[in-house]
């Protein structure tokens, strides 16, 4: 599935490469913590992923200066920020606005509906995307809130602010 996510990838803009690499370096420690925590708390996720535990997923929040590379292998979990021009080829690509992706992970939004409306774009290995979607959908509770809670009151405040911005302008980028 390919997403018409209303924004051109940042990597095509002048000066983006430097910003992107810097941002990746800054967020990487947080991402490692977040993914480890999610994997520990929701081990049932991996069974639904089946053979796609070793697939490379590129999660591309269109308004952020980097994409996210996920390989949900319980033996060697990878979740890292990557500049778009250095993203892994192959595997599956999921593209959309950051808050839409977050709402999809938490099943606050319906993935098929976001696909029908063209807010969500998927390409590459469709079966891998379907498995990841179904695995995440079987999780109770909010991964976004669990993640925010890891960073205490500042984390929750940032999430609340992002949600307000998204609710006010659901079709626009929220984190430029």
């Amino acid at each position: 599935m390919s997403l018409s996510a209303h924004s051109a990838p940042h990597a095509t803009r002048p000066g983006t490469a430097v910003v992107s690499r810097l941002a990746c370096t800054l967020v990487q420690p947080l991402l490692s913590r977040v993914v480890r925590r999610i994997a520990d708390r929701h081990p049932s996720l991996f069974a639904r992923l089946g053979p796609h535990q070793t697939t490379d997923f590129l999660i591309d929040p269109v308004e952020l200066p980097f994409a996210l590379h996920l390989r949900p292998d319980p033996q060697a979990l990878v979740f890292r920020a990557v500049p778009r021009d250095a993203a892994p080829r192959g595997g599956a690509v999921i593209r959309g606005r950051f808050m839409l992706l977050l709402e999809l992970i938490d099943s606050e939004e319906d993935g098929d509906a976001a696909f029908f409306s063209r807010d969500l774009e998927v390409s590459g290995d469709t079966e891998a995307v379907v498995r990841l979607r179904n695995a995440l959908d079987d999780i109770d509770g909010s991964i976004a809130e669990e993640t925010a809670a890891m960073f205490g009151p500042p984390g929750r405040a940032i999430l609340a602010r992002l949600r307000r911005a998204y609710d006010a302008h659901p079709k626009e980028s929220t984190a430029r």
Binding site: M1, S2, L3, S4, E121, V122, S123, T126, E127, V129, V130
Partner: peptide, 8 residues
């Protein structure tokens, strides 16, 4: 799904 492909 294994037979489905989307292209932008």
């Amino acid at each position: 799904a294994s037979d489905v492909a989307y292209a932008r």
